[in-house]
């Protein structure tokens, strides 16, 4: 508004053939478009810096990073699809149980003597079907996703416990398998899980902002009335986001099972709150329409590092929860200053 005369001059005369705009300059555009993710990265780097200063011996050796990089991918496979769910204007609290059920399918197939790759496909199908079911319940049942998915989390976990009576499934045969070697072993000390997780993040970042599905997720989360008017099937996009969440949960479940060589009936339970926190620590706002996949992955990195970091820095385990909360609150305050909600 302050530049009105300027605008008028350019719009009333012959429009220029080319005009340079600040957002057309690569680096400024990059900084502006990724400010949420870069903010999250800054939080992470500051945190690591504090850890390094607190205990240089531990945090300059590879061991501590290697252990985080083994478990972090499981969280990333959950956080990234959850960014899609939050962007479309919904929430999903049922992914821990979906992860448990999908991993259960994987464990049963492998236990029955089939190749783990078939078990992986079975887990993906189970995850997608469960995600589709939860999504349909929310969208076509017109239920609040917060409450409906909370309920579904209990229902699915209940089903696991009823059928297994709390018994776990050991999968020792995994160790020699090609599938395990590709997805879950390490390459000169680098855990391979993180390679797949990074590829997943890159693929999903393109899916999020450069694919029809991703941009429809943005539109539906931003203005469902308008999206519907322009011919986007709003309900289908919402259900698809839940299907995607189910697939992510299935991948997470399989990776988690392969790390432990065991499927536990509680598989996935511990991920609910850290993964939710990671999405928002990563810079995706709660109101839908916008978000950041890269930020979500960095958020997961930050949240996974807190526990390891606190203990590694020489503080007792009793400090973990306090610092967990502190970092979440500080990140949200940072993003609050960063995010503008346009209306």
């Amino acid at each position: 508004m302050q530049d009105l005369t300027h605008r008028k001059a350019s719009s009333s005369g012959a429009p220029p053939d080319t005009y340079a705009h600040p957002q057309d300059k690569f680096w400024r555009a990059f900084l502006f478009n990724n400010r949420a993710a870069l903010g999250s990265l800054a939080v992470f780097l500051v945190m690591i810096l504090i850890f390094v200063i607190a205990n240089p011996a531990v945090f300059t050796s590879w061991t501590v990073y290697s252990s985080v990089l083994t478990t972090l991918p499981v969280a990333i496979f959950l956080v990234v699809p959850l960014v899609f769910i939050v962007t479309v204007g919904e929430i999903d609290l049922s992914f821990p149980a979906t992860m448990g059920v999908a991993a259960w399918a994987f464990a049963l197939v492998v236990k029955a003597g089939y190749d783990p790759s078939i078990g992986f496909i079975a887990a993906l199908v189970v995850g997608a079907v469960l995600g589709g079911f939860v999504g349909s319940l929310v969208v076509y049942g017109n239920l609040s996703s917060l409450i409906a998915t909370l309920g579904m989390n209990f229902v699915l976990r209940g089903i696991i416990l009823i059928f297994t009576e709390g018994k776990s499934i050991a999968l020792v045969s995994l160790n020699d398998n090609w599938f395990f070697k590709i997805f879950s072993s390490d390459f000169y000390g680098l855990p391979l899980q993180i390679v797949w997780a990074v590829l997943f993040v890159i693929f999903c970042a393109f899916l999020y902002s450069r694919h029809r599905f991703g941009v429809h997720v943005h539109m539906v989360g931003d203005n469902p009335d308008s999206a519907g008017q322009m011919g986007i099937n709003v309900k289908a996009v919402r259900v698809k986001a839940f299907v995607f969440m189910g697939i992510g949960a299935a991948i997470a479940g399989v990776f988690s099972t392969m790390i432990n060589f065991t499927w536990w009936p509680t598989s996935g339970d511990g991920y609910l709150l850290p993964v939710l926190a990671s999405v928002f620590v990563g810079g995706t706002p709660t109101w839908g329409g916008i978000g950041t996949v890269a930020g979500g992955a960095i958020g997961a990195l930050t949240v996974s590092f807190i526990q390891t970091g606190i203990v590694g820095a020489g503080l007792s385990g009793f400090y973990v929860q306090f610092f967990n909360g502190l970092i979440i609150i500080l990140s949200l305050l940072g993003h609050r200053w960063n995010q503008v909600r346009y209306r």
């Binding site: 605008r7 350019s10 705009h21 555009a29």
Partner: peptide
């Protein structure tokens, strides 16, 4: 058209 915004705004 304007110098103040682009299609990416």
């Amino acid at each position: 058209t304007s110098k103040v915004f682009s299609p990416k705004s």
